[in-house]
């Protein structure tokens, strides 16, 4: 397994010298195990729960959920390993603030290095922050599924609508 540990602070620009690996993609999600890594931002759980429901409905996936310890920082390595052992692909989010978008991007880079395709969901306002963190972690050009900011204030029905809107992008990110 590639070593996913990079300079956690990125104190020097040299931290980006080695490109982070990208996991191979399955041709389809049918029958795959999908890990949902839910940050604790408002509406992240119903957003990913609905997205998981749609994936199960469309691709007969099985779902595993984990909740981030702290939305503002990258997830501890043991949590990443646990989820990686129980899933074939990962969906994480929702990054609708600076710290949670950066942390989601950092988590995504680690999952990819661990061999798991990942779909990181961020709001459009924080794409730049997520890009900056991904580049810092050696993954320039990292792909995201984006939805309009904000998510936190949406109603239950609006959250479901947003989840449906990113479904195709999430599938595209996770498959070849």
């Amino acid at each position: 397994m590639p070593n996913a540990i990079l300079d956690p602070t990125g104190t020097t620009a040299k931290a980006t010298a080695r490109a982070a690996p990208r996991a191979p993609r399955p041709a389809s999600l049918r029958g795959k195990r999908v890990g949902l890594l839910i940050n604790t931002k408002r509406n992240a759980r119903p957003f990913l729960t609905e997205l998981g429901r749609l994936l199960r409905e469309s691709y007969d996936v099985t779902l595993t959920e984990r909740t981030k310890v702290n939305f503002a920082v990258p997830e501890p390595e043991d949590v990443i390993k646990d989820l990686a052992a129980e899933a074939d692909v990962i969906v994480t989010g929702v990054g609708d603030c600076g710290s949670c978008s950066a942390a989601a991007a950092a988590d995504g880079v680690v999952f990819e290095a661990a061999g798991l395709p990942v779909a990181v969901i961020v709001t459009d306002s924080f794409r730049a922050t997520a890009d900056a963190m991904a580049e810092l972690r050696g993954a320039p050009g990292f792909g995201y599924a984006t939805t309009a900011h904000p998510v936190a204030v949406l109603t239950e029905d609006q959250v479901k609508q947003r989840a449906a809107e990113v479904l195709d992008d999430v599938v595209a990110l996770l498959t070849s």
Binding site: T9, G10, T11, A15, V73, A102, A103, T129, A132, M133
Partner: peptide
């Protein structure tokens, strides 16, 4: 707001 160490890395890049 991201922790200052992370911001340092982001800005450095």
């Amino acid at each position: 707001l991201v922790p200052k160490d992370f911001m340092r890395g982001i800005l450095a890049n």
